[in-house]
Design a protein around this nucleic acid. Sequence first.
RNA 1: GGGAGCGUAGCUCAAAGGCAGAGCACUGCGCUGUGGCCGCAGGGGUUGCGGGUUCGAGUCCCGUCGCUCCUCCCA
Length: 425
Amino acid sequence: MKIGAVRGMRDILPEETPLWQKLEAEIRAAFALYGYREIRTPLVEEAGLFARGVGQATDLVHKEMYVFPDKKGLTLALRPEATASVVRAYIEHGLYAKGGVAKLYYFGPMFRYEKPQKGRSRQFHQYGVEALGSLDPALDAEVIDLAGYLMERLGLPREGLFLRINSIGCKEDRARYREALRDFFTPRAEELCADCRRRLSENPLRILDCKRGGCQPAIRAAPKSTDFLCAECRAHFQEVLAHLDRLGTPYELDHTLVRGLDYYTRTVFELASRDLGAQDALLGGGRYDDLAELLGGPPTPGVGFAGGMERLVLVLRDRAELELAGKLDVYVIPIGEEQEVKRAAVWAASQLRRAGLAVDVEYLGRSVRKATQVASRVARHALFLGPDELAQGVAKLKDLSSGEERPLKLENLGAAFQQKVRARG
RNA sequence: GGGAGCGUAGCUCAAAGGCAGAGCACUGCGCUGUGGCCGCAGGGGUUGCGGGUUCGAGUCCCGUCGCUCCUCCCA
């Protein structure tokens, strides 16, 4: 092996790209139906955007971010997620001044320096939506409904999925809750793992995320964030759930769902698959009502989610009955060594392409038999062109499913082909 | 960051210290210029990389890189 792809980053080969294209098309279509329009932001941002927006203390920023200086000494970062970029662009271009709710969606690679495993790589691809400008709990519900609709549209059975939801309240609620957790866990510190004892001082919310068996009894007994919601946040959350009930969306209240990014407020949710391993979250999101202000813009509430393409591919690959082969219309096979013939073959291919047909030419000098065999695999028709045909001004067109073969005048070749094929129905 | 397993042909995998192999794929021939089946032949490899032990290493040891999975975290 001379040189290979960088660790945690992989090539998506032509075998797989049709599935990716199909998924992208479905996702775009679903987003469009819910009123979202695409935004494309740079892959590179000032590192400070994520430090401030996502949170300096989060794993994602202080452990997993690709950071590098540019030639002028600016500290740049490959984006580890897109919400901060989208909100930055929203502020920078004054999209709030256009009034209404800004509904934006994005698509593209993200970068996190992590140890690769199933469903987790260093360059991965996310799709996501952000709805900026409204506090309405109906919008939270709509975003969650969009996530559910997307999964339906992709053919993922509802039984294989589950929606976890929680509310972590506004900034003030969270401060009170954080203190309550600290008060609760401090006397029980011996029951917690080393990581959690560290979290106790840094960010007690994250203790709830711990998956270690030893910590579970304490976590189960811990106070719930929903018991610390102010009246407004409580009403907001209840209304979100009421909408979900009305929409017929099943969900599980999960008091340990806090998510790892600092900007989240109020509603947080995760849609996970029962068919994946340890990395089972297909998409996750929530509300982030303080983010725009934190990044120097006007106070603007927002809600959205992000999903992982690779995980979608993992779940969908096996059940892809999608006929994605994509055969050529014509495979042109020049016969013999004569340059005159070869030139005519290349010319014929060019003519057919201009008539809207997908065409390739035999370039490897394989035997006619072999070339025909290849043609039958990759194309619907073979077009034979040798010295005899050239002398008569024709080529022989063979239908590779029926075996039927007919001469085709080279003059006006594209039209002749269309006529021939249509005549047969 | 911690742990476990695995790296041999394009792909899937054999070779348990002694000649690096099979199936599939690829190319040619049987069939001179026409596919699907069958038969025959052929091309292919620094056994991930580097070191060590040994008369001899794909095999044992050390290191390194990569992959897979778990933990952690998250999409």
